[in-house]
Amino acid sequence: MEFFFDLTVNGLLVGLMYALVAVGFVLIYKATSVINFAQGDLVMFAAYGAAVMLGLGWMPLWAVIPVLATGMVALGFVLERGILRPLIGQPVISVIMVTIGLAFVLQGLAAILWKAGTRELPLPVRVEPYVVGGVFISPINVVAAVTAILSLVAFGLFFTRSRFGIAMRAVADDQQASMTVGINVRRVFALSWAIAGIAAAAGGLIWGNMLGVDTFLALVGLKVFPVVILGGLDSILGAIVGGLIVGLVESIAAGYLDPYVGGGTKDFVPYVLMILVLFVRPHGFFGREIIERV
């Protein structure tokens, strides 16, 4: 029974870390209807940036974080302006492919600029796990969970209280209508990429600390797909719930099935779950159902 609690708690905590990456994904989809296959690579890029800056030793962590966030915001702006905007109105496949192309460019660039090999990304967080009632909890997981919950609350407030947040929801709902009421749709697009850059920076710091920084960190992006599909592509609450479900399911499946099938269940079960959910609820648990009328 203790084994089960251990798997559950750690699964849920890892799930919140997935949710942290998924939020950036959902933001871009919500405002611009672009599915960003390069979100994992943005996370990787941010982690590299942080590791390199800390490795130089010029700045302490509290100075690195704002620099990193600014850099990622700038990158988000550049990507939106340079790559995504020319594709407005093109078929879905083109938009998907352009983000895949972007993922390749980011991967190659990171490896050329900063060489292969794993770098460490030290954060001032305790390494030894806490033991709560016989369950081992890694402190970085707790930090990640708190960050994820805080960012959920922040994004929730942003979308309901701030002018920009409401404008973004309006654009997501109907681009033409929002233009007619005076919303600058282009600025909203750029802003959503910038915010996704910040989300990537947060994800990069935490994942980079946990797994070490190399180009394989981008594979976190692959894990996010089941999360966002389960929760619904356009729902931030869905990203959190999806993250929790995927974290829980993969942790329990890996704990109980891996001995029988020889490993790898973790990467497999979330996708099976996702396919099953797609059969029953094509728009996830919280996604907006699109009704087509003639």
């Binding site: 192309g101 972007l102 993922a103 660039l109």
Partner: peptide, 18 residues
Amino acid sequence: LANFQLVVFGGLIILFLA
């Protein structure tokens, strides 16, 4: 070279689409 190929491959996809 291996990484340069990645960059060119991705860059070409982006360029063609644009």
